[in-house]
């Protein structure tokens, strides 16, 4: 099983070295000595000890320590968090501030003004969740719930085709031999792994979210649920704001449970609104204050001059930071200026 090594909470370089040296399964690591591993991987002994410590820890966790069935110790939880799978955004700096990407088992809210790239990021994630395990991905499927009608198939196809090219190249880089990529993926296959639902009212939206539990039980390979946007249908016809708050919080709760139960990532896209406070208009994410407690992580996308930036507004585990990103023909990518910066640094060396 190649996937086993990918589950280890070790750095990507170490993982890459393990795989290229042929250590793909946990059992292949269980009997190897420290010095042998260090030599095979061309790393220091202490690094090898560290890897083996993680491997043995992993084995014992698999055996299960829980005192009460269903209960977890904080140590187990920490371990679980470390090995938590993430979905890359295809922008290194954005991944960096997100701690590796959008995390599974959590609800992440992403908000920003129209045209900043929320839908683009949503589509990119729906494609990236399909990255095969030998390239460090989840090989999952995505559910895309479109409430606004901005999901354009031609755009998804563009991003999917760029993704296929990138994966082929990464594969060649990872296994320097001539071994061809195991299966020829096509844009069509990527589209077929996205379950698309178009929702035209808030009642439909609530009904669909209630139905997701059943749908995901039948489609266990779903690793990502995107709602683009969670807001749209809740900004009309709600004279009773208390009712809106109740409906929204029960929806958020369901999504949170879904994320935990099936260890999948939930991404909610939100709009920006002007809020009237103390005599002036200020920008904030829509749906009000009580909603802002509903998500585990909150990311705000904004313009900084001519550049797009993302900012971690709220997260229990990430520090608040911001990073530039860009929207290109191929999808979400590193920002142009950060490429320029690194080029400049190289040329000045």
């Amino acid at each position: 099983m190649e996937t086993e090594v990918w589950r280890l909470p070790i750095s990507a370089t170490q993982r890459g070295k393990l795989i290229s040296a042929g250590y793909t399964s946990l059992s292949s690591l269980s009997s190897v000595s420290t010095s042998l591993l260090a030599r095979d991987l061309n790393i220091t002994d202490s690094e090898a000890i560290e890897i083996l410590r993680v491997v043995s820890g992993k084995n014992s966790v698999d055996g299960g320590h829980a005192i009460v069935k269903g209960g977890q110790s904080a140590w187990d939880m920490l371990h679980e968090e470390e090995s938590m799978r993430r979905i890359t955004t295809s922008c290194a700096e954005l991944d960096n501030i997100l701690g590796g990407g959008i995390s599974c088992r959590e609800v992440t809210e992403i908000g920003g003004v129209p045209g900043i790239g929320k839908t683009q990021l949503g589509i990119q994630l729906a494609v990236n969740v399909q990255i095969p395990p030998h390239c460090g991905g989840l090989e999952g499927k995505a559910i895309y719930i479109d409430t606004e009608g901005s999901f354009m198939v031609e755009r998804v196809l563009q991003i999917a085709e760029a993704y296929i090219e990138d994966m082929a190249e990464y594969h060649r880089f990872l296994y320097k031999d001539s071994r061809a990529s195991p299966v020829e993926t096509q844009g069509k296959d990527i589209l077929e792994s996205i379950y698309y639902f178009r929702v035209c009212s808030y009642t439909e939206q609530i009904a669909l979210i209630n139905f997701l539990d059943k749908f995901v039980s039948e489609h266990k390979d779903v690793k990502l649920v995107i709602i683009d946007s969670v807001t749209f249908h809740f900004r009309q016809d709600f004279d009773d704001l208390a009712l809106r708050t109740r409906v929204l919080s029960s929806m958020a709760l369901k999504l949170m449970q879904l994320a935990k139960k099936f260890s999948l990532a939930v991404v909610l896209l939100n709009q920006v609104t002007t809020k009237y406070t103390e005599g002036s208009f200020q920008l904030s994410l829509a749906l009000g204050d009580s909603w802002s407690h509903s998500c585990t992580n909150r990311v705000i996308l904004y313009w900084n001059g001519n550049e797009r930036y993302a900012y971690i507004d709220k997260s229990p585990s990430l520090r608040s930071a911001s990073a530039p990103f860009s929207v290109t023909g191929r999808g979400i990518r590193n920002s142009d200026s950060s490429c320029k910066r690194s080029k400049l640094m190289h040329s000045s060396e």
Binding site: E148, G149, R198, C200, S201, F232, H233, R235, Q236, D237, F238, T273, Y276
Partner: peptide, 24 residues
């Protein structure tokens, strides 16, 4: 005024949702 702006944007979303539903 804030009240009228709120009422106005609620109508925006109602019109847009209806148009999008028809469009679909």
């Amino acid at each position: 005024t804030p009240g009228d702006l709120k009422r106005r944007s609620s109508i925006f979303f109602a019109i847009s949702a209806k148009l999008k539903a028809l469009a679909r």
